[in-house]
Simulated assay, not measured.
Amino acid sequence: MGLTNVVLLERDRLTAGTTWHTAGLLWQLRPSDVEVELLAHTRNVISKDLEEETGLHTGWIQNGGLFIASNKQRLDEYKRLMSLGKVYGIESHVLSPAETKDLYPLMNIDDLYGTLYVPKDGTMDPAGTCTTLTRAASARGAVVIENCPVTGIKVQTDDLGVKRVKAVKTPHGTIETPCVVNCAGVWAPKLGEMAGVKVPLIAMHHAYVVTQRIEGIQNMPNVRDHDASVYLRLQGDALSVGGYEHNPIFWEEVSLKETVSLIWHKDWK
């Protein structure tokens, strides 16, 4: 948008919170045309523009995306998505179970009605993408300050009774600003409280699994099953499997002093 006097405050180190273990999947087709346009823009930035501008690779891998339909209604939805994709010039194909097997030989197609295949979907590396974005933003005048948590937001009411941001407080000093963008993720509600704003967001405990090496999985598309709320992300010669739990466990109270951690065990199957 042409702004150059931007400051990004990071309470720890960039990507240290929830970013580093995000899936980094980019599916271009969504039911909303606004989302389709936004994702097309994002794909161009991640796959081409950032690397040309900075010389750094975002970790973009174009291995394609595959939506699987286990019922007729879901397949009909994917046919509509394909039609929407044509309007925006996004290549996509509705495949029969047999065609899906040809594309993804390891997939069991016994209960499939068909799939939607988007060849130019892919995956980005979260840490690599953030590093590249930071380099590009810094070159345009932005300042990134790590290990600098926000401790307060100063708000004043103007003559019309409208509350407006005046400054952001940190342990290292105060930054006067009329605009704050709350991009704190899991800690966004805490940051909103500082300005008297309620952010309707709640954190959930979440798990994902990384498999051992699977022969023949290399270069296969990422897979999404909307009915089961599961994704399969290609990770080298293995798969990262995750999704949205149907019976989520909410994380009611997230401390500002907390960092998100991950616990794993090498013997998990």
Rank of each mutant, 00 (worst) to 15 (best):
P221G: 02
V181L: 11
K198P: 07
K169G: 01
V165M: 06
A188R: 00
V143E: 08
I214T: 02
Q156H: 13
H206G: 04
V162P: 08
A167Y: 07
E176N: 10
K190D: 09
H226E: 14
H206V: 02
K154I: 11
T170G: 05
V155F: 07
D227L: 03
G185M: 04
C148L: 03
Q156W: 07
L201W: 05
T170I: 07
H226T: 08
I214G: 03
A142T: 13
V210H: 06
K169Q: 13
I153N: 03
L201G: 03
N182M: 03
E146D: 12
T151R: 14
K166D: 03
V180A: 05
K190V: 00
R224V: 10
I202V: 12
V143I: 15
E215H: 04
T157S: 06
A195E: 11
V209Q: 04
V168D: 06
L160F: 13
H226C: 00
V155R: 12
E146L: 13
C183S: 14
D227E: 15
W187S: 05
C179Q: 13
E176L: 09
G161Y: 08
V223P: 02
A195N: 02
C179K: 13
G141M: 06
I145Q: 15
I175Q: 10
L191S: 10
I153S: 12
C183R: 04
L191A: 08
C179V: 15
I153C: 08
V162N: 10
E193K: 01
R224F: 04
I153W: 05
K166A: 10
I202P: 05
N222Q: 12
V144F: 06
T174I: 09
L201S: 06
M220Q: 14
Q212C: 09
R213Q: 13
C148T: 12
V180W: 12
V180K: 02
I214M: 07
A142K: 09
V223I: 15
A203T: 14
D158E: 10
A167K: 07
K198Y: 06
G173K: 00
V168T: 08
W187E: 10
G185T: 05
D227M: 01
P189Y: 12
C148A: 11
A184Q: 04
M204P: 00
V199H: 06
T174V: 08
A142S: 15
T211S: 08
G173R: 03
V162Q: 14
V199F: 01
I145P: 08
D227R: 13
Q218M: 06
L201N: 07
N219W: 05
V162A: 10
G192M: 11
M194P: 01
A184R: 02
A195M: 03
I202K: 09
A184F: 07
G216D: 03
V168M: 06
V181K: 03
G216P: 10
I202M: 11
V209D: 11
V181T: 01
P149T: 02
M220S: 14
V168H: 04
V210N: 07
K190H: 11
G185R: 00
N219R: 10
V197T: 15
G173Q: 02
R164H: 07
D159V: 06
V162G: 01
T177F: 15
A167P: 09
V186F: 11
N219G: 10
M220D: 04
N147E: 13
P221K: 00
I175L: 15
V168C: 05
I214C: 06
V209L: 05
A142P: 13
C179D: 01
K163F: 05
V199S: 10
M194E: 06
V197D: 12
M220P: 00
